[in-house]
């Protein structure tokens, strides 16, 4: 029986149990938050990722070349709510958005826009029609950068920027 109680002490000492899980890891420098999905997921969905721009892009070239991170990650889109975190350099970002992608190889040229759609963007608290500004502090993360992506109203890049070529 003494052995049994030693096992108890061991099992108890091992701790475990549920613990707080911050959405933004303490070591993250970048942005983090949630993406809520609405509508039916298109059958040709390949990926959803988060992108950020220091300045609002004006052209398709800006859209591809100034994107951070340049190589996109991915956000799970099978649940109605997904958590994300993206490492970014400290600074102020004027457009942070969720991008939908259909199948196709990215070439990091303006031609990539044919595979991409704007799913949703972080909105200004003062004027929700406008993009919100996100500041990533030195050595920390900007939290609560949340999006809503409506799969039924994905928008092409040309709704936001001017594209002169393919």
């Amino acid at each position: 029986m003494r052995t049994a109680w030693l096992l108890v002490a061991l099992a108890t000492a091992c701790g475990g149990g549920l613990a707080p899980e911050p959405i933004c890891a303490p070591s993250l420098v970048g942005v983090c938050g949630t993406v809520r999905f609405r509508g039916a997921v298109p059958a040709n969905t390949e990926n959803v990722f988060i992108a950020a721009y220091v300045n609002f892009p004006q052209t398709c070239t800006d859209l591809i070349a100034n994107r951070q991170p340049l190589i996109p990650g991915s956000v799970p889109f099978n649940d109605s709510l997904s958590l994300y975190s993206v490492a970014l350099s400290p600074g102020t970002y004027h457009w942070v958005l969720a991008v939908w992608k259909k199948p196709g190889a990215l070439t990091l040229t303006p031609a990539d826009t044919q595979f991409l759609r704007v799913g949703g963007y972080y909105r200004s608290q003062a004027d929700p029609a406008q993009p919100g500004t996100v500041t990533v502090p030195n050595g920390a993360a900007a939290g609560d950068v949340d999006f809503v992506v409506n799969f039924d109203s994905l928008r092409p890049a040309t709704d936001f920027v001017t594209c002169t070529g393919p």
Partner: peptide
């Protein structure tokens, strides 16, 4: 409460 369903204080869940 899961993220966003209450005042989650930046937590994935609030049990």
């Amino acid at each position: 409460c899961s993220r966003g369903e209450c005042d989650d204080q930046g937590q994935v869940f609030q049990p």
